[in-house]
């Protein structure tokens, strides 16, 4: 698709989404779209690792969940102002990124994935056991949204998603982003060209961690509670599905995947209680026929020989 047409389509879509609150008064629809924005940001952050740097982390939801818990704990139990809570989230995400970066140094491939999963589960177990700090299985409720009403939240969520998308797009097309793609294509060779790959991996892990933390902050603002379920490995797998279903390595793919999964679960659960099974089958079918995900479907129609140019 020509760049100009792409731009027009994107702007039209953005306008349509922003106009929704004026046309449709349903708070329910608003909260669904806010949720899609939140998971889109989360999924984009994951795609930066998976689709562009080739890092397969099974602990990525740690940032998302810990951010939610940090906001809940500092604002509800310690009565900190919201900005201070955000500052703490940044500090914690940077610290966690540091840990994951060290893991990339020491392990490769399957072992890396296993270690990241272990780290993720460690945080999950801590959230259920450290009852005094985390509220255990019940979670930490009582978070008040900083947005005065749903409509403001809605617009903010959409605009934040747009900013995250544009930033990520620029990142992957920057000189550093090209190096990351080289890491994905041939980690050994890109190092031999003279690049300190550890430094580059650390940078993308930091950025992706902060973005996932941002998603976590928005999540706890919307739902008012942080629970162990968002630290469970099933959450990381959900994000993985969203990215792959939508189209890994495309940035807009994760957004599509997030939207599809949200809408499918809501629409399907309205018809039948077996919706999860149906969704699973649907996922397998899509993967059989469109291995590049939904984004790959559109690419196929617009350009017969899709070359990885950007």
């Amino acid at each position: 698709m020509k760049t100009k047409n792409k731009l027009v389509l994107a702007l039209a879509l953005l306008a349509a989404v922003l106009v929704v609150p004026a046309l449709i008064g349903s708070s329910y629809i608003h909260s669904i779209i806010i949720t899609i924005c939140i998971y889109s940001i989360f999924a984009i952050s994951y795609d930066l690792l998976l689709g562009y740097t080739g890092i397969v982390s099974f602990g990525h939801t740690v940032y998302f969940g810990v951010a939610a818990y940090v906001v809940a704990f500092t604002t509800v139990k310690l009565h900190w102002p919201f900005l201070a809570a955000v500052g703490m989230v940044i500090v914690v995400c940077v610290a966690i990124s540091f840990i994951f970066s060290l893991v990339t140094l020491r392990t490769k491939n399957v072992y890396f994935s296993m270690v990241t999963m272990a780290i993720g589960q460690l945080f999950y177990v801590m959230s259920t056991k450290l009852y005094a700090i985390t509220g255990g299985d019940d979670g930490l409720p009582g978070v008040k949204s900083i947005f005065p009403n749903k409509t403001v939240f809605y617009i903010a969520a959409v605009l934040i998603l747009v900013c995250v998308y544009l930033f990520s797009k620029r990142l992957v097309n920057s000189p550093a982003g090209r190096v990351l793609q080289g890491v994905k294509e041939n980690d050994a060779r890109i190092g031999m060209l003279g690049y300190n790959t550890f430094k580059f991996k650390s940078i993308v892990i930091q950025i992706s961690g902060l973005l996932a933390g941002l998603a976590g902050i928005l999540y706890v603002n919307l739902n008012g509670i942080a629970t162990p379920s968002i630290l469970n490995s099933s959450m990381t797998l959900q994000i993985l599905f969203m990215v792959i279903l939508g189209g890994v390595g495309t940035l807009h793919g994760p957004v599509i995947g997030a939207a599809i999964m949200q809408i499918a679960s809501i629409v399907l659960s309205g018809f039948t209680t077996r919706w999860m099974l149906i969704f699973g089958i649907g996922f397998v079918v899509v993967m059989l026929f469109f291995p590049k995900g939904v984004a790959g479907v559109f690419d196929r129609f617009s350009q017969p020989n899709q070359l990885r140019k950007e």
Binding site: R170, L171, N173, S174, P175, A176, G177, R178, V179, G182, I190, L193, G194, Y195, K199, I203, I207
Partner: peptide, 21 residues
């Protein structure tokens, strides 16, 4: 191109489009 970029000092830039260089 990526091999050529290695020699330069622009590789850590994240906010500029690589086509700029």
């Amino acid at each position: 191109r990526i091999a050529a970029q290695a020699k330069g000092k622009d590789s850590l830039k994240i906010l500029l489009d690589y086509k700029h260089f």
